[in-house]
Design a protein around this nucleic acid. Sequence first.
RNA 1: GGCCCGUUCGUCUAGUGGUUAGGACAUCAGGUUUUCAUCCUGGUAACAGGGGUUCGAUUCCCCUACGGGCUACCA
Length: 513
Amino acid sequence: MTSPIRVRFAPSPTGYLHVGGLRTALYNYLFAKKHQGAFILRIEDTDRDRFVDGALESLVRSLEGIGLVPTEGVMLLEDPHISERAVSRHSNTYPGVSEVGSHGPYIQSERLHIYRKYAEKLIASGHAYRCFCSRERLDLLREKQTANHEAPKYDKLCASLSSEEVADRIAAGEPSVVRLNVPNDRGDIVFRDLVRGDVCIHANNVDDQILVKTDGYPTYHLASVVDDHLMEVTHVIRGEEWLPSTPKHVLLYEAFGWEPPIFAHLTLLLNPDKSKLSKRQGDVAVEDYLSKGYLPEALINFVAFLGWNPGQGSTKEVFSLSELAEAFDFAQVNKAGAVFDTRKLDWLNAQYIKAMTVEELTRKALPFLRKKTYFVSAPDERKADDYLHRVVTIGQERLTVLSAIGDEHAFLFTEPDIDPSLLPWKGNSPEETAEALENAKRILTDVTDSDWTRERLGEILLEAAGEKRGDFLWPLRVALSGAKQSPPPQDIAWVIGKTYTLSRISSALESLT
RNA sequence: GGCCCGUUCGUCUAGUGGUUAGGACAUCAGGUUUUCAUCCUGGUAACAGGGGUUCGAUUCCCCUACGGGCUACCA
C-alpha cells in the first residue's frame, strides 16, 4: 500500500481568484478526490510588497463558493466544515480565516521560523551560502552577460567567502541574502512530470537562486519545497510558469536529502490571440462570472475541459464535480495551451439552467431579478411566489445566464406600450386584426379559472385559430407583450392572468382605431 | 539572446502506423402546430511546412516556421 495522495493549491493573496487559478485548483481537487487524498489550501504570502488587503479572504471565499472546499489548510471562519475537524485555530495574521489540519500553520508568513531553520541547515551543509552583493553589482553583471549573449546568472562571487568573513559582515550589519549553491558538476537534472513526461535541464543553466531575501522572508523556491515536504505533499500540480524553476526545487530536495514529489505542470489559459490570458481581453476573475449569472457547476465543467477530456472516445459533455473526479486522469491532460473562449460556457450554462427544477432556478435567479428596475416598480402581486414561479417557468428554456432573467420579458412586470403597426399579421388589414382580437377576447373571457393553465390555454387558442394560426395568434401575442419577439400568447396569458390579459387586448383594440 | 514547452476544423478536443480524420461549441441550411428561444435533421470546416524511417505516416525521428513560458531579493 502506497502512502495516501496529498496535493495542495497554494495561491498568493495578490488579487481575486483567476480562472487559470481556478483550473489549477480544480485539477488538484479532482486528483485528490479521485484517489481519496487530501486537498490542502496553503497561502503563499512571502512577498510583502505585493500583498493586497482582503485578497486572501476573497480567494478562499471564491474557492469554497464554487465547491472546491479544501480538506485541510486555510478555510473560512464561518465555514460549517470546520466544526467537523479535530484541529482548528484562528490565523494570527488574517482574522477572517482559520486553519484545519495537523500540518500547519498553512500560511507561510506564520512559518518564518521554519524556513530560517532550514536555510541554516543548507548553509551548514554547503548547499547554500550568504551573498552580500549589491543590486547595483547584480544589475551590472546581468547587463554584461546579456551583452555577451550569455544567460544571466550570478557569478558565485560570495560563494567563496570564509565563514569568519561572513560572520563579521553580518555582525557589522551588512544586509545579505541566502543563495542556492548549484554544483558545477551536477550535469543533467531530470524530473518526472505527469503532463510532459521526463523533463531534462542541464545544471549549467540553473542560477544560484536567492532562497532568503534581505528582509528575512523566504522566496517561493525555498518556502514551497520546505512546505511541500513538511506537509507530505505527494504531487505538485501547478502552472506551467514553474516548469523552468523546477530543477532548482529538485536540487533543494536533494540537498535536504528528501524525496521529491511527482510534478504536473499545467498549461496556461490563453487569450483569443493565443497570448497569456489577461484582463484586457475579457473577464478573468471567477467572481465576474458568478456575478454575471454563470453557475458554479457550469464554470467548473467548462474549465475542466480546457486541457483535459474524459478520453476513451467519450462524447459526454456535461459532468458534475463528482463525475469529473471519477473520470479525471493526467494521461488525458493536454500539453498545448487552451484558448479561453466562453461561447461554449454559455451553452453549458444554459444546459444546467434547463436541467434545474423551476423552484431551484427561481431561488437562484431571484437575486438578479430584484436588481431590475422593471421589477422594482412592479406591483406586489407580480412579486408573489406563484407569479415568479410562472415567470421563471416560461423563461427557463431561453435563459443563458441568470443575470438576464426577465430582461426580454419586462412586459410580465409592467404594462407594455402597443405599437398598432406591429399588430397585423402579414398584410392583414386593421379590420381583420381587430376581428381576430375581438374573437380572442370573447374566447378568453369564457375560459374558466381551472382551465387557465399553460396547457389548456394553448389547446383552446390553437383550436380557435383553426387554419389561420398567424392571423389569430400573432396579433394576440403582440397585444399581450407589445414585443416583436416573445413567448407564445398562451404562456403570457397564463402568467399575467385573465384580468390583465383581457385589459391588454382591449388596449390593443383601442390603439387600432 | 539563452533555457524549456508546445503546434488536428474559428474554439475545446478524440486519435498513439493502415480511419470516409470522430464529437462538442460556434456558424450555415431545412424542419418542428404564429414570432423569438428551445428542440430535431443535415452541411461547411483541421492534421503548420520540409526532410527522413516505413509497404504505408496525423501518429516515430530531424530541421524550419510559428506560438507560449522562464530568464527578479514576484509568485
